[in-house]
């Protein structure tokens, strides 16, 4: 299964009230085009989606906050996960879409292939981390996504995926418009 297909699957699981932070590059484009709602589509700030999600989860404790990040982005901001583990925000869910590539910049390797994500994330103090290797078992992937979003508590799901073959269009909004659209959800 490809990254964009995983993100598409989320559309049948989300209720539209979730607050989503997506990592810059292809992941944000996929979240913009494939999921509903005005979300926080990051354009730059590589490495920061987890920390932005943490701040958002603290400010909005009654809403589910979902961070969707690629592996290169996740690894750049890895230490933010230790802060997340320290805080244990129960409304924060993190999905790592891992294609082992810097796909947006042309498919250069990340170091992701050597990492045991479960051991690493559990070692930080997040017991609920799950990891799943690339597969086409659509029912199992849907169940894992559902559990990650709907089960109470801080949940982290690491998914190995195949490289996407289609690059979606750029997000048409200026970042200030992205921000204004997102914040108008609270008014």
């Amino acid at each position: 299964m490809k990254g964009a297909e995983v993100i598409s699957k989320l559309s049948t699981i989300l209720n539209g009230e979730e607050l989503i932070v997506s990592s810059n590059g292809n992941v944000s484009r996929q979240v913009y085009h494939l999921l509903q709602g005005d979300q926080i589509y990051l354009r730059g700030s590589m490495g920061l989606p987890v920390s932005i999600g943490l701040g958002l989860a603290l400010a909005q404790p009654n809403r589910t906050v979902l961070v969707i990040t690629g592996d290169g982005n996740f690894l750049m901001g890895l230490s933010a996960m230790t802060t997340v583990a320290h805080v244990q925000p129960t409304n924060l869910k993190i999905i790592i879409i891992d294609n082992e590539l810097y796909a947006t910049t042309g498919g250069q390797d990340t170091v992701s292939s050597t990492i045991d994500y479960i051991t690493m994330i559990q070692g930080m103090g997040i017991d609920t981390a799950r990891s799943f290797n690339m597969s086409d078992d659509e029912i199992l992937i849907s169940e894992m996504l559902k559990d990650t979003i709907l089960e109470p508590g801080l949940n982290v799901l690491h998914l190995k995926v195949e490289e996407d073959t289609i690059v979606l269009d750029n997000i048409p909004h200026h970042p200030t418009k992205i921000k204004d659209n997102f914040m108008s959800r609270f008014s």
Binding site: L48, P49, V50, S51, L58, A59, G77, A80, T83, K179
Partner: peptide, 24 residues
């Protein structure tokens, strides 16, 4: 106040940005 120690300064900027986007 709640004070959250960050591991890096850019992480702190990220946390503060998320907190602002959530209305704080």
């Amino acid at each position: 106040f709640t004070y959250l120690p960050a591991t890096r300064e850019d992480e702190a900027i990220g946390i503060a940005t998320g907190y602002f986007l959530g209305g704080g």
